[in-house]
């Protein structure tokens, strides 16, 4: 059994969260509240020491004054907390939204549309290629809303949903895999680091 007090704290909190499995209870809620507070603090400190200090204050110290604009917009963002001048935070939000929209417009078109079209344009010369081309085309037809799914289109949409279901099956299997892995990690901690029963 571990003699490290940190491990004991960790084990105690682990059990606190796991107690939710029995039912929602105060022990769980306390652990969860600590989680929320500590997590917020972690983000906060990282913002200060990994972004604000080097990228804003550091540059201002070097005399690169145009960074001040970013600083001002950033502080305006915090005005959201003060109801009277909260509307000023929209300037900063608008900047972020504009940047995101401008970049997304291009990169999604390039990486997730054009490059995917290019990847699908292949000769029908192997079972793999045929599967890919039929799957992409019928899948797109399934999500086409401007025409009734009847006749040929209906048939194609039906094939499309089969493909989608197979891919959801794959997602299902992978998601189960992910959840189990995380549990193994935690159990390994309890039985190895804390109880010392495993190596």
């Amino acid at each position: 059994m571990s003699t490290d007090i940190g491990v004991w704290i960790a084990a105690f909190l682990t059990l606190g969260i796991l107690s939710f499995l029995y039912k929602d209870n105060p022990f769980y809620k306390v652990s969860e509240s600590i989680f929320i507070g500590v997590s917020a603090a972690y983000w906060f400190v990282y913002m200060i020491y990994n972004v604000i200090e080097p990228n804003l204050l550091g540059n201002l110290q070097k005399g690169e004054w145009w960074y001040a604009v970013a600083g001002i917009l950033g502080v305006m963002m915090l005005f959201r907390l003060i109801p009277k001048i909260g509307w000023l935070s929209r300037w900063a939000v608008a900047f972020m939204i504009g940047t995101g929209a401008g970049l997304n417009f291009i990169v999604y078109l390039q990486s997730n549309v054009m490059k995917q079209i290019r990847g699908t344009l292949a000769p029908l010369n192997s079972i793999g290629n045929i599967m890919m081309i039929v799957g992409v085309i019928t899948g797109l037809i399934y999500f086409f809303f401007s025409a009734e799914h009847k006749g040929l289109l209906g048939g194609a949409a039906k094939v499309g949903i089969w493909f989608i279901m197979v891919s959801f099956g794959a997602s299902f299997g992978y998601t189960v895999m992910a959840r189990i892995s995380l549990l193994i990690g935690r159990m390994h901690f309890l039985f190895s680091d804390w109880l010392g029963l495993l190596h």
Partner: peptide, 8 residues
Amino acid sequence: AAQRAIMI
């Protein structure tokens, strides 16, 4: 294939 259709 299906993921690509969804992605597009």
